[in-house]
């Protein structure tokens, strides 16, 4: 099993490895700032409950997405952060792909850098997982291809100028040159839907969460790289 970083150019590999040059670190720094700021009617910051992120958040991102016991549904890291905003900070949820949500998510996930991805399957997430696996293997769009056709059966090959990777999510949120920004795993997956000329699920859709869970399971053991750098 290979991380996507093994399929990018030397330049990008160096960029990701150098914390001073990695553009994703700007979002991480911004997230660190937001971590310490009080928000909402609760008047609490993330730090007020969780203290030092380097300690309390270490390894957390590697276990997501997971079923939140209170909400009784599958949530990804972004969703979990918004649950805290709602329940503890009594603040408005942060919008999908907003700079603030990306910054906080990148900051929290960054605390797991190097930790192997490891989601456990159980009775609670089994259905989500099965749906994710089914969608991953289903041909979609006018191009009539499934994720598996590229990311299991064509990795290492060239799709025009791009080398197809195994399609793992361990680098996300990641900075993409094409976006000139950090983006979420859902944004990356939606880009593949778009390329296939398939109807894109909206951000936060159950289908995307299901896919995220399936991807996390198949990436089991790969180290979290956030913030990754990609084309």
């Amino acid at each position: 099993m290979k991380s996507g970083i093994e399929f990018v150019s030397d330049d990008l590999r160096k960029l990701q490895a150098d914390d001073f040059a990695n553009p994703g670190m700007l979002w991480v720094a911004r997230g660190e700032k937001i971590w310490g700021e009080a928000a909402g009617n609760g008047g609490k910051s993330c730090a007020a409950c969780h203290g030092v992120a380097a300690k309390s958040m270490q390894g957390v991102a590697a276990r997501y997405p997971r079923v939140d016991p209170g909400a009784a549904r599958l949530v990804n890291l972004e969703g979990r952060i918004n649950l805290c905003r709602d329940r503890k900070q009594q603040a408005q949820p942060l919008g999908p792909e907003s700079d603030e949500l990306l910054a906080l998510t990148a900051y929290v996930a960054h605390q797991s850098r190097g930790v192997p991805v490891s989601v456990t399957l159980d009775m609670q997430n089994r259905k989500d997982f099965e749906r994710g696996r089914e969608l991953y293997n289903r041909r979609i769009g006018q191009m009539n291809l499934a994720c598996t056709h590229c990311h299991d059966r064509s990795w290492g090959k060239k799709l025009a100028a791009e080398t197809v990777s195994q399609g793992h999510g361990n680098a996300f949120p990641a900075y993409r040159l094409e976006w000139q920004s950090v983006g979420s795993l859902q944004r990356r997956i939606r880009a593949c839907f778009y390329g296939l000329r398939a109807e894109m699920p909206p951000y936060g859709a159950q289908e995307l969460l299901d896919l995220e869970l399936y991807l996390a399971w198949r990436a089991g053991g790969l180290p979290v790289e956030t913030p990754g750098v990609r084309r």
Partner: peptide, 22 residues
């Protein structure tokens, strides 16, 4: 096959609206 079907409209899944039926 990984070769897309270039002249076909049925039994495709969730084709984006702009291309549906074509």
């Amino acid at each position: 096959t990984k070769m897309p079907s270039y002249y076909r409209v049925d039994e495709l899944n969730r084709v984006a609206e702009a291309w549906r039926g074509q």
